[in-house]
Design a binder for these strands. Sequence first.
DNA 1: TATTGTTATACTCTATAACTATA
DNA 2: TATAGTTATAGAGTATAACAATA
Lengths: 140, 140
Amino acid sequence: MDMGILIDTFGYLLRRAWRDADRRFAHHFRTLDISAVQFSVLELIDRNPGCTPGDLVMPMGITQNNMVGIIADLVKRGFVTKKTDAHDRRARKLSLTDEGATMLSAAHAVHDLYLAEYAQRIGAGNLKDLVRLLRMFDRG
Amino acid sequence: MDMGILIDTFGYLLRRAWRDADRRFAHHFRTLDISAVQFSVLELIDRNPGCTPGDLVMPMGITQNNMVGIIADLVKRGFVTKKTDAHDRRARKLSLTDEGATMLSAAHAVHDLYLAEYAQRIGAGNLKDLVRLLRMFDRG
DNA sequence: TATTGTTATACTCTATAACTATA
DNA sequence: TATAGTTATAGAGTATAACAATA
């Protein structure tokens, strides 16, 4: 099949690559039962304890209303605590529970295997180049 | 905000980059009113006249049932014709109409502007490197 | 029996708008 | 009046299963 301009079109290729990465992520994380978004949120809360749902909106590229459900699920599963900020009672401060820290630790281990698979498929040097290039897509 | 390992995580960065690319695509194509998937399908039909919906399944990464609606919409809008194959009456042969060819031509012009915007943001050399790397993600 | 296309359906992700409680 | 979070809802996108027509 003639791919026309698609073979050189980064948008088309980005979509395919993202779907491939997401699918393989889901496969690796099927026993832990967390999505790529949930993993990223746990990582951000771990590195920024006391952050609010609003703080996660920009780095995650998820709107505030949709963040509610993601946080609620992590709280329900016992990985995250959500407490009203004493100084601004509108805000909710997020932290990992011990269970959340354990889950994140396990997730890091699985993520290393996932990365190793890609390093074998794509090459570690190529992945490093890819990360450098993708960082340029930060949007306002 | 501390991004933790996410700053080096290609899956996280792929998601952000894809969403950025898709959003800007939609912005550029708002007057033509076609999505990135529709553009890709038109391109494939143009380069492979007489192809079937099934032929598009693998390159597009879309399942056959969902392809039905995409094709039906393009037919409804007068860009694509769908004819039963005389030699295999199960198959439907797809081609662009004159209107479809005109639309694709206009889409190419818009796509060039879209690419020029990214070339300015990211750099033409970086985009070329990115395309080379993303091609490695072809999946079976 | 197998294949092509199709319909039905459900689940996830995302987006907009309106609401609440606080400030 | 503005902000943080929340609820409701609708629209894409995607997936599985079952079906019709044809091979």
